Simulated scan of single mutants.
Amino acid sequence: MEKIISSPGKYIQGKGVLASLAKYSLQLGDTALIMSGGMVKSIVTPIISKSFSDAHAAFYMETFEGECCRTEIDRLVAICKAKQIKVVIGVGGGKTLDTAKAVAYYHQVPVVIAPTIASTDAPTSALSVIYTEAGQFESYLMLPKNPDVVLIDSQIVARAPARLIVAGMGDALATYFEARANGCSGNPAMSGGIPTLSALALAELCYKTLLKDGLKAKLAVESQVVTQAVENIIEANTYLSGIGFESGGLAAAHAVHNGLTLLSECHHLFHGEKVAFGTLVQLALENAPLEEINQVLAFCHSVGLPTCLADLGAGDVSKEALMAVAKAACAAGETIHNMPFKVDADAVYGAILVADQLGKRV
């Protein structure tokens, strides 16, 4: 099987780069649909409006309704057709960006991704995670190419609540361990090929960067300042994790996350917070060395990521509910089957309980 590494056409990161959005958009098309939602829209609209006005470029702002679901995607595609949009731009968090990628794919135009938070590795990938209107995981939409441009303004990211960049660290935490498992199994990654040496190296660098700069970045963002640690963690959460997961592969951690979406007790959590616990479950599942597990636990504790079911709000859920999570994680086609050994629901259920007990010790 061939080796494949996938990446966006351009990755741009730095303080104030959102003001350059029109310049990069015009390289792809002369009429842009820009989608963002909630408080994000009020923050970015003045910057974006000035950028496009100064460039004498046509653009339309549209409010994202909050869920990356089929209904919202269809609504936005219809707007693109009506306004003859030539480039789609998503500005905001993971679900906004995944929706923008899906809309651009169905409308068959280029896409620019402008994250305002560093809470997931979604921005760089050729993938949209589709949910139901109720917020439960539905499917992965595999896209034929990565975003044309990813532009992330570190100054805006640093102004967001620290919990968001910490959630991104939780998502990024899984990157190395899932890529390692996938590399051992020899299964194809999300890119369609087996992991390249480059992807595995980026995944490992992602983990090392988290350990080195994670706590310092959290402290800086709590003061709403951009330091080198913040820049490094934004890159780790967004680019290193994005390339690492897509070209290195997913495994048990994200499958457990998908299972956890069944629990209403976990709906208040961000994606990366659930993935962090999923990483601990994966380490328990593969019987990783205790020294390695303790290192991950110590990191999670230092930045405030959940390490046990109680931290997820699920400390009192029933055995039947946890078994339902385990079964969902093992559904046909789930990424847990990229583990280098056979996995079933009983094994996942046991790993959840072990991870919970290990996490309680921190």
Results as ranks from 00 to 15, higher is better:
51 S>P: 08
138 E>G: 09
31 T>S: 06
108 Q>N: 04
58 A>M: 09
51 S>C: 14
51 S>L: 08
107 H>E: 01
110 P>S: 02
128 S>N: 09
72 E>V: 08
33 L>P: 11
85 I>P: 10
96 T>F: 02
117 I>Q: 13
26 L>A: 07
41 K>Y: 12
84 Q>N: 12
41 K>A: 12
51 S>H: 14
101 K>S: 01
54 D>A: 04
79 I>D: 04
86 K>D: 07
119 S>W: 14
130 I>M: 05
78 A>Q: 14
75 R>I: 01
112 V>K: 03
90 G>H: 00
80 C>T: 01
66 G>M: 09
93 G>H: 15
29 G>Q: 07
142 M>E: 08
27 Q>L: 09
30 D>Y: 02
51 S>E: 11
131 Y>H: 10
117 I>D: 15
45 T>W: 13
112 V>P: 02
100 A>S: 02
48 I>E: 10
128 S>M: 02
130 I>F: 05
89 I>F: 03
105 Y>Q: 03
47 I>M: 12
30 D>S: 04
125 S>R: 15
67 E>S: 01
98 D>W: 05
144 P>T: 00
107 H>W: 05
122 A>V: 08
36 S>H: 12
118 A>R: 09
33 L>V: 01
93 G>V: 10
114 A>L: 07
90 G>R: 04
145 K>A: 00
51 S>F: 06
70 R>Q: 13
87 V>R: 00
53 S>E: 14
133 E>N: 09
123 P>T: 11
101 K>C: 01
116 T>C: 09
144 P>D: 01
91 V>A: 08
47 I>E: 09
26 L>V: 03
47 I>H: 13
73 I>R: 15
43 I>V: 05
133 E>G: 03
142 M>R: 14
55 A>T: 03
120 T>D: 10
109 V>G: 00
40 V>C: 09
28 L>N: 02
127 L>S: 04
